[in-house]
């Protein structure tokens, strides 16, 4: 089977050609996914840090819930977001359905539990180390959460990357709430689904290779950033 070789060759020529449609799709993929990851971090980091750093009734249940929500099926999230933003749904008046906004909402719902659950683990481990020292210094609850998040910042970059990986590869939710509309809501994954349904398997595979390359570039960029930050954080 020469499908893979052909796909890689196609992928390379797609990238080298700088096809306008492809660039548009890549751009939207990144815009939607990165927006969702940023929103997820804004919501998930404090939640995860709070669960990781505080003792409170129901903490074990909260931990289990966060871990379980990591397995939210994207299609279910897509359906819920569709029903919420449908013209006959509660948020229909916003007109977000079949726009990138609804896709960002859906991916945020998918990624937030991942960020929160992994943050919980990272922060809890760090807090185990810091707890006595913090108590001795008289660190207050808010300062504790902020200090733990700050001190765990490099581990949390990896957490954000895990969320990015999940979101950028996700198709089930965005195809329902975005509608895979050409030039409006078509992203890499929905384009791959479309080409597969057209039977253009080589092209679909090539797009998959491009998606993988994007993920590699983003990961490499974040890791390079991290290395630079580690070097310069103390300058």
């Amino acid at each position: 089977m020469d499908g893979f070789g052909a796909a890689l060759a196609d992928a390379l020529s797609l990238i080298l050609a700088g096809d306008a449609d492809l660039l548009e799709i890549i751009g939207l993929s990144l815009r939607v996914t990165l927006s969702a990851v940023v929103l997820s971090c804004l919501i998930g980091l404090p939640i995860g840090a709070a669960v990781g750093a505080f003792r409170f009734p129901g903490r074990a249940a909260a931990t289990v819930a966060l871990n379980a929500l990591m397995g939210l099926p994207p299609v279910v999230v897509g359906l819920i977001v569709y029903l919420a933003f449908s013209a006959s749904g509660p948020f229909g008046v916003l007109g977000w359905l079949y726009t990138p906004k609804a896709m960002i909402v859906a991916q945020t719902i998918i990624v937030t539990p991942i960020v929160a659950a992994l943050t919980r683990q990272v922060v809890e481990d760090l807090h185990r180390e810091y707890a006595e020292q913090f108590a001795s210094l008289g660190v207050g609850p808010m300062e504790r959460v902020l200090a733990l998040l700050w001190d765990a910042r490099f581990s949390l970059l990896t957490v954000a990357l895990a969320g990015f990986g999940r979101a950028v590869a996700e198709v089930g939710a965005v195809i329902i709430v975005g509608g895979n509309i050409n030039h409006v809501t078509r992203v890499m994954t929905t384009a791959i689904a479309l080409e597969t349904s057209k039977g253009n398997l080589e092209l679909a595979l090539a797009l998959g290779a491009v998606l993988l390359a994007i993920a590699l570039v983003v990961n490499a960029a974040v890791m390079a950033l991290r290395a630079a930050a580690v070097r310069s954080a103390y300058a």
Binding site: E129, Y130, Q133, L137, V139, G140
Partner: peptide
């Protein structure tokens, strides 16, 4: 009363910051 006390542990617990940052943190919480 606790804030009028301080403690040094057998194994130092260093925050993931600069030496200077560890000192300013202790002051910031006060």
């Amino acid at each position: 009363g606790r804030r009028a006390q301080a403690m040094v542990f057998q194994r130092p617990v260093m925050l993931r910051r600069s030496a200077f940052g560890n000192l300013t943190f202790a002051l910031a919480v006060r």
